[in-house]
Write a protein that binds this DNA or RNA. Sequence first.
DNA 1: CGTAGGGTTGAGAAAGTTCAAATAATGTGG
DNA 2: CCACATTATTTGAACTTTCTCAACCCTACG
Lengths: 246, 246
Amino acid sequence: MLVDTRSCESSAHACSHKRSEDGCADCKVRLISVCSVLALAELEELELLSQHLSFEKGQALFGQGEAANSVYNVIEGALRLTRLLPDGRRQVMGFALPGDFLGLALQERHSVSAEALGPVKTCRFGRHDFAAVVEAKPHLLRSLHERAGYELNLAQDQMLLLGRRTAEEKVAAFLLSLRDRFARTGRCSVTVELPMGRQDVADYLGLTIETVSRILSRLDRAHTILVVPGGVRLLDQDRLRRLAAS
Amino acid sequence: MLVDTRSCESSAHACSHKRSEDGCADCKVRLISVCSVLALAELEELELLSQHLSFEKGQALFGQGEAANSVYNVIEGALRLTRLLPDGRRQVMGFALPGDFLGLALQERHSVSAEALGPVKTCRFGRHDFAAVVEAKPHLLRSLHERAGYELNLAQDQMLLLGRRTAEEKVAAFLLSLRDRFARTGRCSVTVELPMGRQDVADYLGLTIETVSRILSRLDRAHTILVVPGGVRLLDQDRLRRLAAS
DNA sequence: CGTAGGGTTGAGAAAGTTCAAATAATGTGG
DNA sequence: CCACATTATTTGAACTTTCTCAACCCTACG
């Protein structure tokens, strides 16, 4: 085979349009992305506006407060969405996985920074282009709105976690929720991959890196989990659920 | 004048439709609510589906997890939006003020409980009725979506606050943000009314009631604010801004 | 083999919490 | 309008949890 339909491996920058070989119809995340509500004809229309973009570990897709010129579908990899306080304190607002859409709100400016946690593949649109399509397709807007509602829900979960849970509850709840999210995109559900570093977890849970590390160690010693390189194996999910207090 | 256009003062329960005297066109919050995007003809259409509902202090509009049969425009008063942990720990997700819309996401079930902090007047719609109108009016959906984006922003602000700010920063930021919100609905901006109790503030900021009280006292002693019954007077807003670290 | 970047562990400090008690506000019936 | 009951708020002291700072370990990699 001369033509690899998934050959769009540009190193960190836009690859040219190869629509005929790598179209939306074959998109790995089509059915779990906003695009799932589009008919094939509509997909083709959108496809003309799209561009595949890859990013390396650590690369920023955009920064908090920047003009939102682009919006993205995440196809592969994981991202960290963060906000900063003027003095450098950081809060991770969430992690984006395949099927997630960045720029959901279609706002003027990005409200968070987005950085790749590893190699990431995205499907990029100009915001105005995309907004124009949305304008013409109310059901797409409806899909975005549904997602926004879902995001709002997650944000509320996280507020409850940040405001009212103990460190141990936070870590336990985090592991379980990450497992659930991976499960939805069809990953193994016993071993939870942690594509982010300890500092990211800490900044997500409103803890310090030391506290996260200590609690993981403690859960490991209690045989509730097994800490392995690059992830965690959930040995006793029931106990974890009890610890998470949810 | 025989007809008072704002006479709909039912005590805690639905008042009958008096559309001719108290219509959307005269609505106090029309210009700051989702309805601001509607033309007069559209308003009249919506008006037929609406119903004024009042609530007493402490009354619940709906509870977390309940089927969302209704959505509401807040016309007057203030509400507390909360989530509970199974063991009773509570997180206040936000406070709704006049012009706010409850049920923005149009989801099956309410993701929070909503309780009146004092006398509240609302404009109620059946969710399905409202959703049908939204379906027919993409610009209304667009307005809802914009609001959802704004809510998402606020939620992210709050996550940053909950996860990374100190108690003093939390309280200072809270007072300033409340002042800003009241300012947008045209209230005095030196004396900030606090329609919620200390426990509500604590549950909003992820603190205990004692800590909130102590910090307010400390700010008072430092002449940064003046604690008065039912509110707070901001004496030194610059210092407050510095304390808020934003 | 040495170095760099994560990650883990320990000891002491600090920010908040908890528990208890005192002090305001608020509402109620006489 | 007052006395009392009730609820909300404030304050203090002891205690916990989490943070800070410092050292150490491990793995990957040149």
